[in-house]
């Protein structure tokens, strides 16, 4: 294993596999406008979306748990609201997955890629 860091007990897990940039480089990148933008883009998508799907899921669980009458209302034939509500959880999961992938491909990956090349290029 590596000796790139001074204290053996404080070694980052990925250290030792390659010569990483120095500590001040990480701090410099962290405060760069590009990185601040990347962080802002990531957080402004994943935090609200997490809140949204957790709230939607909890709403479902609470209704299924405490509003049996409502869930038992039949819509078409033997298909009731409970079944449709449950299937909508599947639909929302698939939709959020697709939305995130599209967002990450367009808005996150290009910025992350630029910063990474800058760091890894600069370290060599």
């Amino acid at each position: 294993m590596s000796t790139t860091e001074s204290t053996p007990g404080d070694r980052g897990p990925a250290a030792g596999t390659e010569q990483g940039p120095a500590a001040e480089d990480w701090a410099r990148v962290q405060s760069s406008p590009e990185f601040v933008q990347l962080r802002q883009r990531l957080r402004s998508f994943v935090f609200p979306m997490t809140g949204l799907f957790l709230a939607w899921y909890l709403l479902y669980v609470l209704v299924a748990d405490y509003a049996h009458g409502f869930m038992s209302i039949k819509l078409v034939g033997n298909i009731n609201i409970g079944l449709v509500f449950g299937l909508l959880q599947f639909v929302s999961t698939f939709v959020i997955t697709a939305l995130y992938v599209r967002y990450a491909n367009r808005r996150l990956d290009p910025v992350a890629e630029r910063i990474r090349q800058e760091i890894e290029g600069g370290a060599r």
Binding site: G12, G20, W26, V29, Q30, L38, L42, E113, I115, I119
Partner: peptide
């Protein structure tokens, strides 16, 4: 950690 985790650098 933050730069690594978001960019995949290193």
């Amino acid at each position: 950690m933050e730069v690594r985790s978001l960019t995949g650098a290193g």
